[in-house]
């Protein structure tokens, strides 16, 4: 966001009648969900050759649209840099922020935001050119490091180098394309961000194979969708959209079999798909909200494998992002 936009956004906070009142009503009135995403991070939120948004963060927003409108296409995307994302959310420019954003205490408690859960458990990693011959982050004393302004990355790296008594130079750009360019041209010796981001940005380098990711993971980066504080109904929809996708994977429903599962006699399946109970109505939606999410976008496994999984250019193993039943930490509260 250019400065002018920041100022306009602030004017938004100043002028908006009642910003928080009922995001759901506003969204229904305008007919789409306005979703804040990145300016291009393959696997998370990125435009394909035809100009369509793809990625796991994007699919989360499509799932919200499916839950609300029964139509996954009723969503518009606003690309935001890390620096401008929170202002865009609190000013009402977007309804939900789904932009590889780390859940931290400050952001949750001091910025007027609420995190709807964790869509991807990540940690900060580092990438260096192979020719340096460095094999551990502990050997990086004296390095120049390129990062994005306004990220947890910027703060973690300072902590890490300070606590290891190493000196470094931090070069912080607003746009990640500039970060990648500066690293690629040799201005910096180290590129650092969330591990998933390293995998994604690495694809943009001139020779991705000349670079390697160091083994250290220096932080916890639980990435998840964010909404404004003060609107519990909207917060609930955001939380349960995510929970529904994770529960669907656990219960074995996906976009292929959801139609059959509608006939299921299993009570927990009936609650999820809305064939019994009023779970949808209670959060202001139709009862088949979750069936729409699963049918139109898919369950967690589907969006993971489609966007970031081992068969994509990012080649990310499920790891901790596997279900709790399969050795991961993905665990959604039950629908009941």
């Amino acid at each position: 966001m250019k400065l002018k936009q920041t100022i306009l956004a602030i004017a938004g906070v100043a002028l908006a009648g009642s910003l928080q009142a009922a995001t759901l009503d506003d969204v229904k009135a305008k007919g789409h969900v306005q979703c804040g995403v990145s300016q291009g991070l393959p696997g998370f939120s990125n435009t394909d050759d035809a100009g369509n948004w793809t990625g796991i963060d994007v699919d989360y927003c499509r799932a919200m649209a499916a839950a609300i409108f029964g139509d996954a296409s009723k969503v518009k995307f606003t690309p935001l840099s890390a620096k401008e994302r929170f202002t865009a959310l609190s000013s009402g420019e977007i309804d939900v922020l789904s932009r590889n954003t780390t859940w931290t205490m400050t952001r949750d408690t001091q910025l007027g935001l609420n995190f709807a859960g964790v869509l991807y458990y990540d940690g900060q990693g580092m990438m260096v050119p192979r020719e340096l011959g460095v094999t551990s982050a502990k050997e990086l004393d004296g390095a120049a490091i390129c990062v994005n302004t306004g990220t947890t990355t910027e703060l973690n790296i300072t902590d890490y180098f300070k606590s290891n008594g190493m000196s470094f130079e931090l070069v912080a750009f607003e746009k990640s394309d500039e970060v990648v360019k500066a690293y690629d041209s040799g201005r910096c010796n180290v590129f650092t961000t969330d591990r998933s981001g390293v995998a994604a940005e690495r694809l943009k380098l001139t020779n991705p194979n000349d670079h390697m990711v160091l083994p250290e993971i220096i932080s916890k980066e639980p990435l998840g969708p964010v909404v404004r504080q003060g609107d519990d109904q909207w917060f609930n929809i955001a939380k349960w959209t995510l929970n529904a996708m994770i529960n669907a994977e656990e219960m074995g429903v996906d976009s292929g079999n959801v139609a059959d599962m509608m006939k299921s006699e299993d009570p927990s399946m009936q609650r999820l798909l809305g064939t019994s109970g009023d779970f949808g109505k209670e959060i202001g939606l139709e009862n088949n909200w979750a069936a729409n999410i699963i049918g139109m976008v898919g369950n967690y496994k589907e969006i993971y494998e489609k966007n970031v999984g081992p068969d994509t250019p990012l080649k990310l193993q499920r790891g901790v992002n596997a279900l709790w039943k399969s050795g991961g930490i993905l665990y959604a509260p039950p629908i009941r």
């Binding site: 620096k83 929170f86 609190s90 400050t106 910025l111 302004t149 306004g150 990220t151 703060l155 912080a172």
Partner: peptide, 8 residues
């Protein structure tokens, strides 16, 4: 930029 993003 940086500071504003930490403090909001």
């Amino acid at each position: 930029g940086t500071a504003l993003n930490v403090l909001g």
